[in-house]
Design a protein around this nucleic acid. Structure first.
Lengths: 260, 260
DNA sequence: CCCTCGTGTTGCGTAATTCGCACATGCAGC
DNA sequence: GCTGCATGTGCGAATTACGCAACACGAGGG
């Protein structure tokens, strides 16, 4: 057993990163950061100033507001090449899924308690689901998220379900731990997950897991569309389609062929 | 006059960011970071651990190495929407320039003493210049960089030229401050910058500045190709092409129409 | 098999670093 | 001008982070 992990975090770094993320959500001023983090204005200022000196933030000469430095983040992101590569690999499959289903196809990975959308092909219908890349959504109410959750070992899922904050977004969001647990078991059995207006009213999504060469689940692939087109009657048909393309993408990544 | 800026940086945050950037350049271990930053292993470990706790890094269960968390960076980058938008706006112009010139077209912005490539269209010839988005290159020896430098007020340029480290990459790299200063003056007069094998032997680049609606230079657009195709005879012709498309992009951004 | 070396990880005391207070400065609005 | 409000900056106090030292563990060699 590996030694149990420490829990003492470096406070200044922790606060600095929090300030950085605040700046990414919109321009910030020392007073805002100070209030949000419960620290003194001067401390907040020094954190922001340090972030600026290291190139992460810029300061508007006139308004004195601190703003994120896009170029810096682009540079950092450029070094994390894997996801760009991902888009390249998955692009064809997303297009195929989009064209076959007629709906927006998207691909996401897990990041803490969220799914991050890392690639997509927006649907071409007048009414289509659309959102920016990099968007994050809760695991428990998105199809991609549930597909990822269901792929975990039972014990892990049980613990997560018990401790997670199951925020409600619509009347249909599953907020009861026990119900979510049963729901996820069914997802695993069926091989696909459905978000039935649990995040946005009028939007239904279907997703299936993607496996890598070690049969590990590393991402999820799915479609999102209006309930008027993804009807309950059509749902199984769409689900077959999603699972099929997900299996193809998994195969492309070298996953051992399980079923099909 | 605004109060003169402080110079005291928050040490822990500074070191933490340094550790983070090391991790982005490849997996790191506490001992590596400690040695590189001249700090104790335990300190390096705590920084890395904090970065992991906040989602920036992951730790391999087996090798204990810390590695960057791509999903986190994608999420952060997704919040900095401007550059993605940029690619959308500039995409058509890059394609146009690529098709007209037959060479790789690229767009970059300044980040400290570097140019960051934020969008490009690789040339389709068998022998074409190609590199990943997010790459950075020194200002003084790249065409994009020189186009950006030349757009500054004289005093700023003079100071920069005097204090910058003009590293040599090829025999043709300009490393003398006075010569670079004269060179940049000529760039401004002519309206375009040339990198004549100053970064890579056999590669010639041409670039021109992009102005926004306030006539501020915010980026540079250019082409890169082998010296066998971008010959000295053809250079003026290519330059006209680059300047023309740069002017079109500037106009698209609402820049006041100056010449042409 | 033991011994050594190197590394990840943690406890602890010290001292350096950071924090918050207080103030100077600048700016907007009455 | 005066008042309110925010940014930016000394400075002393003490919290915080740092380095030392030690433990656990694995690799490699004798």
């Amino acid at each position: 057993m590996p030694p149990r992990r420490g829990q003492q975090l470096v406070q200044s770094l922790e606060r600095g990163l929090a300030a950085l993320e605040m700046a990414l959500d919109g321009n910030v001023r020392p007073s805002h950061v100070a209030e949000a983090l419960g620290i003194d204005r001067s401390t907040a200022y020094r954190l922001l100033y340090t972030l600026m000196a290291k190139g992460y933030l810029l300061q508007d000469e006139r308004t004195r507001e601190f703003t994120s430095n896009p170029a810096k983040f682009f540079q950092l992101y450029g070094k994390v090449a894997t996801l760009l590569d991902w888009s390249d690999v998955a692009g064809d499959f997303l297009t195929r899924l989009r064209d076959q289903s007629g709906e927006t196809a998207n691909l996401g990975v897990r990041q803490a308690n969220n799914v991050i959308y890392i690639a997509h092909k927006p649907g071409q219908a007048a009414l289509s689901v659309n959102f920016a890349l990099g968007t994050s959504r809760p695991l428990h109410c998105s199809a991609l998220g549930k597909a990822l959750l269901a792929a975990q070992p039972d014990a892990v899922t049980a613990e997560w379900v018990a401790s997670a904050a199951l925020t409600s977004y619509t009347a249909k969001t599953i907020t009861e731990p026990s119900r979510l647990k049963r729901h996820l078991e069914r997802v695993r059995v069926e091989g696909y997950a459905v978000d039935d207006e649990e995040t946005f009213a009028g939007v239904r999504c279907i997703a299936a897991p993607i496996h890598d060469h070690r049969a590990q689940v590393i991402a999820a692939l799915g479609i999102s569309g209006p309930t008027t087109r993804i009807t309950h009657e059509q749902l199984p048909h769409f689900a077959q389609n999603v699972m099929q393309v997900a299996a193809q993408l998994s195969a492309e990544l070298g996953a051992p062929v399980a079923e099909l």
